[in-house]
């Protein structure tokens, strides 16, 4: 497990008494995420995990409260100008653009790229194990490779906060572990703050330093991952992960689209 000591570039993320609703159940978040650490966000379906990420990314606007990134209130900024990159469960790539172009969009949204940009893109692709696949279209890639392209774009974009919304949920266990290790490695190099939504306790144990547990649209508990999995988590968390604790091989690997 890496702790990102090499380049501490990450900034803290805080949701300060943020409230939000999709029209039915109200959600309210009051939580801080430590800078340059990986926090796993867990909780039952509908508990608001993805919504929390969407609020940080700027896809949703809070009804009240503040979203602070690096201490600055980003409430008024559009998603693109927030210091945040996000990887979704699917649709991370434009199907008609090549791998290289998809990554290049992380540098210039109109794809006007300099020589230096091209060099960075090639390096990011190499770093994510995609060397030689620059010209491929997304449909010519496997599911895991597509998410690697998204991670390569994260590298090229180089923002201090990375949001992962179950990006590996539809991959098999071995591949998922590979991807998690890649994220951990990238985190070790760049030291960004990572917020990581997952349903899998073993994923959280594998790379998570902290756990935030959501229930019913609010933060039910937060703390160090080791404490959570040592049985110090709240009752609701223990019920959520089941009797066998974090070692359970989950039966639902393919997740609903969120």
């Amino acid at each position: 497990m890496s702790d990102g000591a090499i380049a501490r570039k990450g900034v803290p993320v805080q949701l300060d008494k943020v409230s939000f609703t999709y029209g039915e159940a109200p959600l309210s978040f009051d939580v801080a995420f430590a800078a340059a650490e990986i926090t796993a966000i867990m909780g039952p379906s509908g508990s608001g995990k993805s919504t929390l990420l969407n609020l940080v990314a700027g896809f949703e606007t809070p009804l009240s409260g503040r979203v602070l990134i690096g201490g600055a209130d980003v409430g008024a900024s559009p998603p693109a100008s927030r210091p945040v990159s996000m990887v979704f469960q699917e649709n991370n790539l434009f199907a008609h653009l090549s791998v290289e172009q998809n990554v290049g969009l992380g540098r210039s949204p109109s794809l006007r790229l300099t020589e230096a940009d091209h060099a960075d893109i090639a390096e990011a692709l190499a770093r994510t194990g995609l060397a030689g696949k620059q010209k491929r279209l997304p449909r010519e890639l496997s599911g895991g490779e597509r998410q690697r392209v998204a991670l390569a774009r994260v590298l090229v974009r180089d923002r201090p906060v990375l949001l992962l919304d179950e990006p590996f949920a539809s991959l098999g266990p071995a591949l998922r572990n590979d991807m998690l290790d890649l994220v951990a490695d990238l985190h070790a190099e760049r030291g960004m703050t990572v917020l990581f939504v997952t349903h899998q306790p073993q994923d959280a144990r594998r790379i998570g330093q902290n756990v935030v547990f959501l229930d019913n649209g609010a933060v039910a508990a937060a703390g160090a991952a080791d404490d959570f999995f040592a049985g110090a988590g709240p009752e609701a968390f223990r019920r959520y992960i089941g009797a066998s604790g974090g070692d359970a091989v989950s039966r639902d690997i393919a997740r609903k689209p969120t």
Binding site: A80, S81, V84, N91, P109, S110, R157
Partner: peptide, 12 residues
């Protein structure tokens, strides 16, 4: 498919 991605990457 593209809306969030465009917003995120500032493609407009």
């Amino acid at each position: 498919r593209h809306e969030r991605l465009c917003a995120q990457l500032g493609i407009s």
